[in-house]
Amino acid sequence: MAMDPLEHVLDHAWVGSVTKHQILLVAAAVAVAVPFILLARRVKDGTPPRGALWNFLEMLLLFIRDEVARPNIGAGHDHAHDDAQHDISDTLAAEVHGRAPHAATRHPADRYVPFLWTLFLFILTCNLFGMVPFLGSPTAELSVTLVLAALVFLVIHFGSIAKNGFGGWVKSFIPHLEADNLPMKIFLTVLIVPLIALIEVLGAFIRAAVLAVRLFANIFAGHVALGVILLFAVADVHHGGFSPGGTVAAVLMGTALSVLELFVAFLQAFVFVLLSSIFIGLQLNPEH
């Protein structure tokens, strides 16, 4: 057992030159895609959910759609849709079969719901892999979370161009400031508006970076902390100085921290999707 906690968190070659995280990423993709596509095909005709897994899936996905995507992406001022309760099969059917559900029941946010679902389940699976002995969390690596955030960045901006047009997208970066008198108007237009526009453009990248760093830092730090505490349990064997009581305490703390990590795995997947949907909503409905 390596005595450096980082060795248990950082990526390393597993099969030939293919690394552990690369294999786990593919495994996570398969673990998400196979059962959920199968379940989606069963749900699509509106059959009521049966069985624990099916109910759990429906609860998770409905939560993301109704509590995260729809309120945050929304349709600007029009919240009439927000209260509408629809069957999950409506959204699923549209995505599995590519047919549009009844126009009146389709919420504007539903376009992004499949992306957010995939994102949530994939990140959750990656996070949960870290709870399995000898595996690890691919999301504890910045390059993985950066790619996920880059995908969100593309969805935000291509979604905005698709909805508001290229001109509308460009205009969303330029603030509209009102002034009472002419000198103030000149001051705002010449100095402040370009500065804010520049910051808005920078902010678009910062949002993606914040998403990536938040997920990476939470998962990475949690695993390093867990690694450090668990290594206390075996430290006496290697270096002496630790009493059996210390070992017991380290195991107990490690167990408690593992439970916390289990919570963090769900929480960070949720936070990633929540912030993604807020950022999508902000860009789709600018300045209203």
Binding site: P71, N72, H79, I199, I206, R207, V210, L275, I278, L282
Partner: peptide, 21 residues
Amino acid sequence: PGKDRRVDYRGLALAGTAVGE
């Protein structure tokens, strides 16, 4: 009041971005 919760979360997101900016 889903709208209240929404404002809270949006504030969180905006605050994080504002510090970064």
